[in-house]
């Protein structure tokens, strides 16, 4: 007498439970629903030309991206997560296996230049070149919606990876370094 349709509501219920459980697991792994996938992946980095923030390092231009792997890091002196990320970037750029295989470009996003310079004086300067994006327009061209954000650019000048929010040691180990090895092949 019992037909398969009587089990249908229970089946739908369990499918929903499985779906919600899956989303929860993803969130605990860092894939929060408020992280918006970038449409810029695999597209050429947008054009930009920013004046230098500090005297001893050059500003940044899109034309300088060709022929090497580059990480572009949007940061700001008023940004608290950037404070947590900064020592990781300093450590990363001191590693002998990174030297010569990745250029680190900093873009000081919507910051007062003197504040940006004070930040680097206090915390160290891991960047090969630093540009000043005072009005945040270059940020918009990259699709930045908060700092810090980082973009890994391949030798052809295409965006291959976007990090929303600060890098953690785990992100660097499990996402950035494997991708860097692949792009340097």
């Amino acid at each position: 007498m019992r037909r398969w349709t009587t089990l249908l509501p229970a089946a739908v219920f369990f499918v929903l439970v499985a779906f919600f459980a899956w989303r929860l697991v993803l969130i605990t792994r860092g894939d929060a629903p408020n992280l918006i996938p970038s449409v810029m992946i695999d597209k050429p980095a947008p054009a930009f030309d920013l004046p230098p923030l500090v005297l001893d390092r050059p500003g940044v231009q899109a034309s300088g991206l060709q022929g090497k792997v580059t990480l572009i890091n949007f940061f700001s002196s008023w940004c608290i997560p950037c404070r947590a990320e900064h020592p990781l970037l300093v450590n990363l750029m001191n590693r002998p296996d990174i030297k010569g295989r990745m250029t680190l470009i900093g873009i000081d996003y919507k910051d007062r230049p003197e504040d940006g310079r004070g930040w680097l004086d206090r915390l160290g300067n891991p960047y090969d070149a630093i540009g000043m994006d005072r009005d945040g327009r270059v940020g918009i061209d990259f699709g930045v919606y908060g700092v810090p954000e980082s973009y890994l650019i391949d030798r052809q000048g295409r965006i291959r990876y976007k990090q929303v929010g600060p890098f953690t040691a785990e992100d660097i180990r499990e996402k950035l370094l494997p991708l860097l090895a692949e792009l340097n092949k």
């Binding site: 918006i36 996938p37 449409v39 810029m40 947008p46 918009i140 990259f142 699709g143």
Partner: peptide
């Protein structure tokens, strides 16, 4: 804006 931030 869609080119930069997507349909979102």
């Amino acid at each position: 804006l869609v080119d930069r931030y997507g349909d979102y």
